[in-house]
């Protein structure tokens, strides 16, 4: 051992240090990108506006058709389900029940289901 030439040691050592340094830097840059991505994507990917819009569309539907099932209301319901799947990539379903007496008001129980693969949303609301 003692006879070995150790002159090259520092080169190896320095190489190692630089490699470690670069690794850390890469990690940091990666993380900083992640910060911006997660905050903005958290907003973009959570379909708050879509769900609100869907709820209002369902309420409009109830305003228009009550809980009746006829060809016209069924067509509108099919519109919402089919267009959601095609254009919003979201599986949507909703149903409107017979009005019930909720503290003196006749309200329809509405169940809404929404799933776009990332976010799932289920709700029973009286309207």
């Amino acid at each position: 051992m003692a006879c070995m030439n150790e002159d090259g040691q520092w080169i190896v050592l320095m190489g190692l240090l630089v490699a470690v340094g670069l690794f850390f830097l890469a990690l940091i840059i990666n993380q900083s990108a992640l910060v911006g991505q997660t905050t903005a994507e958290g907003v973009l990917e959570f379909p708050k506006n879509d769900i609100r819009d869907l709820r209002e569309a369902v309420f409009d539907y109830v305003d228009e058709f009550d809980h009746e099932e006829d060809t016209e209301s069924k067509a509108v319901r099919d519109d919402i389900i089919a267009i959601s799947l095609e254009r919003k990539n979201a599986v949507v379903d909703f149903s409107v029940g017979d009005p019930e007496d909720i503290s003196g008001r006749d309200l329809h129980p509405i169940t809404i289901h929404y799933n776009n693969g990332v976010t799932e949303y289920h709700e029973t609301v009286y309207y």
């Binding site: 990108a33 910060v35 991505q37």
Partner: peptide
């Protein structure tokens, strides 16, 4: 970074 472009989109 790629992440920043998401903010104006948001």
């Amino acid at each position: 970074t790629a992440g920043d472009t998401h903010i104006p989109d948001m």
